[in-house]
């Protein structure tokens, strides 16, 4: 593997090593990044003919490790999804589609659709909250911009479980939120938030909104503010300027944020476990159940594959969209 690539002419201009053109020949393969090294310089063929080999060797341990532990384990999940369990509940490999047809049962479909609904709703709510926040910080944050973004990012790195636990206290029946709402008459004594779909989605939003804020902030920050001024000079009201200028300019940031929120939200089981009730379980809870309590690993694997398939479709849609946007931008 390592020697093969020294002979392979790479397309020019891609990077340092590939800057070398095929006709430079093996002796000048030493040339390195620019390829236009003056002939008077001593060739270091011994040092850098081994260059590409050195880089390949450096790359190998990490790649082999990830192939073994990551790709290997994912293949194992895919294989086991086609297997069965013996009467004792031990997983057996096989080639049956039983697990996937079992997933078509209404009970599973309901959980699947609910997870999809919760995850999509989480994206929408995150977008609605994150946009004004990112907008304010990027365009009106002044010299406090970096500090404000850090104040959002740092607590996000605090332990996810502890944050969710604190969130469950805030949303609890006697928690600060409901007490406040009752005080201003917006909630009655019987109003509950915990153990409802609202609290599960609220948990997902609280957990992952930072993934929406960062790309939106980056997009708004990159945007040329003169565009907004131009919109206003052309007698666009604030709203029209926003919808015709600002929003289109940051669409890619929003799309990236949606993917970054959708991925973890779809697979989450902590929010439904800590904030929801039995009627709010998501696909993550089902998977967890099949591997820990239910001990039906093949079915759990099939659920995992289904989750991956949904996410894959979502990613594909995003990538196609992004490519189209890029093509339009170039035109």
């Amino acid at each position: 593997m390592a020697t093969q690539n020294t002979a392979e002419p790479a397309p020019p201009g891609l990077g340092e090593e590939s800057g070398r053109l095929p006709e430079d020949g093996a002796a000048d393969a030493a040339g390195g990044p620019r390829g236009n090294r003056s002939p008077g310089r001593p060739a270091r063929s011994s040092a850098s003919a081994g260059g590409n080999r050195l880089w390949t060797v450096l790359m190998l341990p990490g790649t082999l490790w990830m192939t073994a532990f990551l790709i290997g384990s994912l293949v194992l999940v895919a294989t086991l999804a086609l297997g069965t369990t013996d009467p004792l509940g031990n997983p057996r490999f096989g080639f049956r589609l039983e697990n996937f047809s079992a997933l078509a049962e209404p009970a599973y479909l309901e959980v699947m659709l609910r997870s999809l609904g919760y995850a999509l709703l989480t994206c929408v709510i995150c977008l609605l909250i994150a946009y004004p926040v990112a907008y304010t910080i990027a365009l009106h944050g002044g010299r406090f911009k970096t500090l404000l973004i850090a104040l959002i990012v740092v607590p996000f790195f605090a332990n996810y479980l502890v944050r969710m636990y604190g969130w469950s206290v805030v949303l609890s029946d006697d928690g600060p939120l409901l007490q406040g709402l009752r005080a201003i008459g917006l909630a009655s004594d019987g109003t509950k938030i915990l153990q409802t779909g609202t609290s599960v989605v609220a948990g997902l939003v609280y957990g992952f909104i930072v993934f929406m804020i960062i790309p939106l902030y980056a997009a708004l920050e990159r945007m040329d503010v003169a565009l907004i001024e131009a919109g206003r000079d052309l007698y666009g009201g604030p709203l029209r300027t926003f919808f015709h200028v600002t929003l289109p300019a940051t669409r890619q940031g929003a799309a990236a944020g949606c993917v970054l929120v959708f991925l973890p939200a779809m697979g989450d089981f902590v929010s439904a476990q800590l904030l929801g009730g039995p009627d709010q379980i998501m696909i993550g809870n089902l998977i967890q159940d099949k591997f820990f309590q239910g001990q039906n690993w093949p079915l759990g694997s099939a659920l995992t594959m289904l989750l991956l398939a949904v996410l894959f479709l979502g990613m594909l849609g995003y990538l196609r969209r992004a490519r189209k946007d890029e093509a339009e931008a170039l035109r």
Partner: peptide, 23 residues
């Protein structure tokens, strides 16, 4: 530094954990 086919494959493998949910 290494621009060959193995490099791009390794780059793809490296991205897998970032687009796969933890569960």
């Amino acid at each position: 530094r290494c621009r060959n086919r193995l490099g791009s494959l390794a780059g793809l493998i490296m991205l897998v954990p970032l687009v796969t949910p933890e569960i």
